[in-house]
Design a protein around this nucleic acid. Structure first.
Lengths: 333, 333
DNA sequence: TTGAAAGCGCTAACAT
DNA sequence: ATGTTAGCGCTTTCAA
């Protein structure tokens, strides 16, 4: 290749990376490049420079729409910045997480974005010790001080949902939750009901983190207290299962029982009843995280150590309504 | 590192890659590895061997549940075989596709799985010329002869949906379709109605490939012919929009209008009404494709040039029912 | 501005 | 079974 243009490979390298080259040399080299269809070998470049223009992304699972929407955003941003996406699913498992992490390190990725607490939480020391920038993403538990976090104010989100239900007159609310993962959402909800109190026995943990799990937990909730007027599900998929449980029990949503979800994944606004849910600024979150990371990559400095908690908003649709008057708490009517 | 164990780096290499080594040497080296926390540099290995243990996957978008479920399957399989996943979204755009392809080639990925016709179809020659195995995945158009294809018999799938509706007595069916992409599904449906014919004017193209698009197209269909008794949507998301359109128009599903979808994405079995749809063997498809590719990688041979069309099945739920008797075609009652 | 030399960390091939 | 040599294709450094 170099010989073809009558120059050294160094000059070719200069041309490819846009360094100062005499116009006539430039032309000569570009001609040879075109003729030979020369493509620089990025692996060799990576070996030499130690950087790969590749960013790793950990998610618990891509099948979960919340995460797949995140993957979409992150991929688009990375491509826009000239980076590649190496995707790995942690399956909420510390061992998978660890294996992926070692792999990424050995491959010299430029940065890593890790979403979801489970599995990742056990590898925090190793993540913090990585020799490339790492940020936590959609982190729900107590944020570690060692790593930057870009996430959502989950507790506030739960609070929003709670206020909504309380304002509608609901006093007998059950929670269908993926626990312990979603504890902050439940705490927030509980805060909204502080004065009236929310019975611990009204919190139903799901045995599986899907619609079937939400269905089962909601059935249990309805069995335990046929008088309840609202169900808060800690994410939309569980809410879909909960709605099914309510309807199957012969009750109506929202006339008899209101259901509120969490995430605002695509399509839940179009099913019947359209789901009332807490909406996250997903795009902004992805943007902040990616920029935090790439700024660190570009500067060669460790990433700014922040905890950035984006504020969610409530999206009221058709699945929530006023509590049944015959079940209002005394003095509220 | 090598010095620490008192051997050459070659011996270390042999230990790491599990070659024949004398037990005592093995122990010595392993001790040094543990002490120094030595990790082989995979980039250097890749430069030397020309292979990266990385497989590229192209999908139009990860936000679409059909593709994200595929990504999940493929990732799991690849990890199981010791490979990494480099994910790229084509956005149905030939330019993105091309850019990603050149990038992957420069990075020496070991193989590429390309899903979705749009954008990819324009880069077929370049894909076929790649110096690593490439397979087409979830390919709906006419399969090219130059590349192996692992896909679904989309036309048969449409046929299944059509037979179902015809058997239920439906004669006045509208189609809500993402065209031209989903033409084979429509052709299959039409074949089921061959005798009775399916009017071209009953096919409504969606202007956007989401629930809003399905909603709009279904509204148009209902306006054009208030007497229709069934709508076939070429995928589930469109079907969700179509159901909304039917319900908003004051009709009931399935009593007045049946709706049948396509894909069986997660959750459509749990919404109300639970969607009747055509189910794909996604896992099998992912398995076949990944194995086809990895077999080629392992053997160093080009992949077997097959067209493997998996057979879908019909999943009947609540969104389809008998045609209204007052709208049955004459002689069918 | 361009050339020459060195080396990133690994493995293939051959010699011992 | 282990050591030696060479080189993958690039970029960094220094010399011309």
């Amino acid at each position: 290749m170099a010989a073809r243009a009558g120059v050294t490979k160094q000059t070719v390298s200069n041309v490819v990376s846009g360094k100062k080259v005499r116009p006539e040399t430039l032309e000569k080299v570009n001609k040879a490049i075109a003729e030979l269809g020369y493509k620089p070998n990025l692996v060799a470049r990576s070996l030499r420079t130690g950087s790969t223009s590749t960013v790793g992304l950990f998610v618990p699972s891509v099948a979960n729409p919340f995460y797949s929407e995140m993957v979409e955003e992150v991929e688009n941003l990375l491509v826009g910045h000239g980076y590649n996406l190496l995707l790995a699913t942690t399956r909420d498992d510390p061992d998978y997480t660890r294996a992926h992490l070692e792999n990424l390190a050995a491959r010299s990725v430029d940065a890593l974005l890790a979403a979801g607490d489970n599995g990742v939480d056990q590898q925090l020391p190793m993540l913090a010790a990585a020799n490339f920038p790492v940020a936590l993403f959609a982190w729900e538990g107590d944020p570690p001080t060692t790593l930057p976090v870009v996430s959502i104010d989950y507790q506030h989100a739960g609070f929003l949902a709670g206020c909504h239900l309380r304002d509608l007159g609901h006093r007998n609310v059950a929670v269908v939750a993926d626990l312990p993962a979603h504890t902050p959402r439940v705490v927030g909800l509980r805060r909204a009901f502080a004065a009236d109190g929310l019975d611990d026995r009204k919190v139903f943990a799901c045995t599986s983190d899907d619609a079937a799990g939400g269905f089962a937990a909601a059935c249990a909730a309805l069995d335990a207290d046929p008088e309840l007027t609202a169900i808060f599900a800690t994410h939309d998929i569980l809410a879909i299962g909960a709605i099914e449980a309510v309807v199957r029990s012969g009750r109506r949503v929202p006339d008899d029982v209101s259901v509120v979800g969490f995430d605002d994944i695509a399509q839940v606004g179009r099913i019947r009843p359209a789901l009332t849910t807490v909406t996250f600024p997903k795009r902004e979150m992805a943007q902040q995280a990616v920029e935090l990371l790439l700024r660190a990559v570009d500067s060669g400095q460790p990433p700014t150590n922040v905890v950035s908690l984006l504020r969610p908003t409530l999206t009221v649709r058709d699945s929530s309504g006023p509590a049944r008057r015959d079940r209002l708490a005394p003095g509220t009517a």
